[in-house]
Design a protein around this nucleic acid. Structure first.
Length: 270
DNA sequence: CGCTGACCCTGACGGC
DNA sequence: TGCCGTCAGGGTCAGC
């Protein structure tokens, strides 16, 4: 479910409810996530005040004095604010109970997400080696051009590589390549600097637009405040195999790249 | 170092 | 109605 815009939407949705709030209790009903939830996590968090909620790549960091809770939503995870007394349902694995009576409830059918602990100022192996944020000044076409030299893999896999740039998942990789007019299978090392400049701009534009609209609603995605996202209405290629290209009217085609579906227009993308 | 494919897990969906 | 194969927004890891 979550790509960067969905994670950022979640961050913005839950922040007002938990910044400055004290955690009364962390309730772990199912610790078997992507990695086991550390047994000492409830003890570490109980009684601590959440100071800020940050996002790095697709990770959320709930910062407290003794350290940070590191949350990843995986493929099917969501974090929502629920009022007191609402009973947990199926796949509601973790509750972060707050002094206000509200509760942040983690729901994740596939359990590919994670809840981990980060020492203050400490480095975590998962956060090490991450590329720049796509919406930062560090990220631009020159960076893509430089990192791609000599690489024979597809440009789609390249922009989805978290060591190159974080936060570009399958949906937005498809969309961005369509907007930039680049064939997803084109070898990354055989794309000009000018085209990478356009591609970087498309990545920034699409992600910004998706965040503004609260992310993309697929199946039951809802932001931290429970509202759906609206970006799905303006997808050009993702999930539209066999349908007409919104630009030229041709039929969109689907191929598989690195086990992921890639939809594109043979006419508009070269 | 870069690339490919397997893998983690549940649920939805289409074909029979 | 049910069974079976396939696919799904994430990322890590082993092997070549």
């Amino acid at each position: 479910m979550p790509e960067l815009p969905e994670v950022e939407t979640t961050r913005r949705g839950v922040s007002p409810y938990c910044c400055g709030e004290v955690v009364t209790e962390l309730v772990v009903r199912e610790p078997r996530l992507r990695w086991p939830v550390p047994e000492q996590l409830p003890l570490l968090m109980a009684g601590q005040q959440i100071e800020t909620v940050e996002r790095r790549a697709k990770y959320l960091l709930f910062n407290m004095a003794p350290g940070s809770l590191l949350v990843h939503l995986g493929m099917s995870g969501s974090l929502r604010v629920v009022g007191p007394g609402l009973l947990p349902g199926k796949h509601d694995h973790i509750d972060i109970r707050l002094q206000s009576g509200s509760c942040l409830r983690y729901h994740d059918p596939r359990r590919f997400g994670s809840f981990l602990w980060l020492e203050p100022g400490g480095k975590h192996p998962l956060l090490d080696h991450l590329g720049p944020e796509p919406l930062s000044g560090e990220f631009d076409g020159d960076l893509l051009y430089r990192l791609s030299r000599g690489r024979s893999g597809s440009v789609k896999s390249f922009i989805m590589d978290g060591k190159v740039v974080v936060g570009v998942g399958n949906i937005y990789a498809n969309e961005v390549l369509f907007l930039a007019g680049i064939h997803p299978k084109r070898p990354a090392g055989r794309i000009s600097r000018a085209r990478y400049t356009l591609l970087a701009d498309c990545i920034k534009q699409v992600l910004t637009s998706a965040i503004d609209q609260g992310g993309t609603t697929l199946r039951d995605f809802v932001g931290g405040d429970g509202r759906p996202g609206y970006f799905a209405q303006q997808l050009f290629v993702y999930g539209r195999n066999g349908e007409a290209c919104k630009h030229c009217g041709g039929t969109l085609r689907e191929i598989r790249l690195g086990q992921r579906s890639s939809v594109f227009c043979v006419t508009c993308q070269r």
